[in-house]
Design a protein around this nucleic acid. Structure first.
Lengths: 197, 197
DNA sequence: GTCTATATGCTGATAGAC
DNA sequence: GTCTATCAGCATATAGAC
């Protein structure tokens, strides 16, 4: 209880991150001022600099955290199960993960150009790691004769673009629920990859 | 020859649009100032307002022109030919059109949130018109038994996301040329749509 | 940890000269 | 059609009080 007067920061750090994420997603990094983030949190602009050295770091931490969590969540825990099941699993996890985090997903895709060079390289590396995992599955599937893929790298790009695109049109009160969407995408992706199901 | 001193605007209008497009694509609408556009054109900031009433209109005109050109280019000139060929054609035209205009494509996708409400509605309508054309093809293919598509709307979103994603990774000095990429995407899209080829 | 006050500079847009 | 000059406001970030 050695807290000074005016100090109620126990929840401020996550509030800053939440406010920044929400505002960056909605209006874009460049269009959001530190004053606006502060107002959303309920402090003055200067107080934000107790939590981040500058605006750029705030953006980077949000994107870096998002990518790290993605890689952790999408870690393949069990190498057992055949390749088609693993690809179905990738499809499901990708859709569920990103639909659960629309703001972070949007920021991670839209604000890449607002990262400085060093930060961009870090995020780019994480993105590549994620893509490589999917490519490994596709290559394994092709080698075992379960898939017919003309080009594994293009297949990766096509599948990830399809999947991430879900976030752009999904609505909670829409015609299909998440499980239904996952099932349809699993079907389309298996087919696109030439699965002999 | 009734031109006043200091008047050399014959090429300025397109220069303004080109500069704005290039800068918006690279740094984002919100991060680009009118002064910076003017500097790129080689005039002072005030001179831009002879060509656009404000910055917002400049963005809207770029996006509106892009979408109108897309709809014109992708107009289906010949209803003859079977559905699979028409879908292959859609794939080819989409990829070629967008690879030819990387900046406009990028701006059209990234800057939607920076349109004011009225302008956004216009662009949204054009985008929907484009999607509806593809859906018509898919529905016709399904009805004639050529395609197996669990959900035509999701199929549209998946296909367009796949196709537009090409712009994010394509490089002119890359491993595959445009024709090669088109062929692979035609194959993956036919398969995704359950074509019995 | 948060406040107020401030520095330094850039923003979109307009007015009037030429 | 383009220039210069300018308005009024907001930007990021820091300093020092409490």
């Amino acid at each position: 209880m050695a807290r000074k007067t005016g100090s109620h920061s126990r929840n401020t750090a996550p509030k800053v991150r939440d406010a920044a994420l929400r505002l960056f997603a909605r209006f874009g990094y460049a269009a959001v001022s530190m004053r606006r983030i502060a107002a959303e949190v309920g402090v003055q602009a200067g107080a934000l600099y107790a939590y981040t050295p500058d605006k750029q770091s705030l953006l980077f931490e949000l994107m870096n955290g998002h990518m790290k969590t993605l890689l952790k969540t999408a870690a393949i825990p069990r190498p057992r199960g055949d390749i088609l099941n693993q690809i179905d699993n990738f499809t499901r996890v990708h859709i569920e993960f990103h639909l659960k985090r629309p703001d972070a997903t949007f920021v991670a895709y839209m604000e890449l150009r607002n990262l400085d060079a060093a930060n961009f390289a870090v995020i780019e590396q994480l993105r590549r790691t994620y893509e490589d995992r999917l490519e490994s599955l596709i290559i394994a599937g092709r080698e075992s004769g379960l898939l017919t893929v003309p080009d594994s790298k293009l297949a990766v790009m096509a599948v990830i673009a399809m999947l991430t695109g879900v976030n752009t049109w999904f609505r909670d009160d829409g015609r299909l629920d998440r499980a239904g969407i996952v099932a349809i995408y699993q079907d389309m992706i298996r087919r696109a990859l030439g699965a002999q199901n």
